[in-house]
Amino acid sequence: MEGSTIIFYLLAALTLVSGILAVSTRQIFRAAIFLLFSLIGIAGLYFWMQFQFIAAVQIVVYVGGITVLIIFSIFLTQKAGEKMPKQKIGRQIFSALAAFCGFALVMVQVYQYTFSSNINEAVSPTVENIGNRMLSVGEGGFALPFEVVSMLLLAALVGCIVIAMRSPTETVNEEKTEILIEEEIDVIV
């Protein structure tokens, strides 16, 4: 067994074990932290595969962004150190079944798909290549999906501002980001 294989199994074990702990723990904050470890494990797998850019982006987006948001929403809504009530046995079985179905679906797909290597040379995942691909409009370029995703994000942002606004008649003309920040201050202070 090579050293690299051992590292793969270690990372996989970290990802899976913390993933299982994230859904089985009864303290919601611990669940968020185990989710964080699971995501870090996936970032570690990307590093293991030498996709350093993807790994760094995984950490920025999921660990630095989404998990912090989750933790913040727990801070603002939950009480510290309280255990959640135990779920009904029927629900447990149902959710386990749902998870198993999803897993089975993925595994069936993976086994049915014939992975053929050497069809075309893989693009080396440097930042230059990723940037060029992302913004190129030619063959194999991702300019259109990229822009569509940015539109989606814009829509989400506008939606957030609309939700965060106090009343639509009162503060339409004011700068919208300011309202967001004020909300944040009210919460924190």
């Binding site: 932290i33 964080l36 870090i40 350093q52 850019f53 760094a56 982006v57 950490i59 920025v60 660990v63 630095g64 962004g65 998990t67 912090v68 933790i71 801070f75 440097t126 930042v127």
Partner: peptide, 19 residues
């Protein structure tokens, strides 16, 4: 290859320990 991005990524984890 991505030194600076790596640093910005990892340093965003440091907030987790504080939280």
């Amino acid at each position: 290859n991505i030194g600076v991005l790596y640093i910005t990524a990892i340093s965003s984890v440091s907030v987790i320990s504080v939280l």
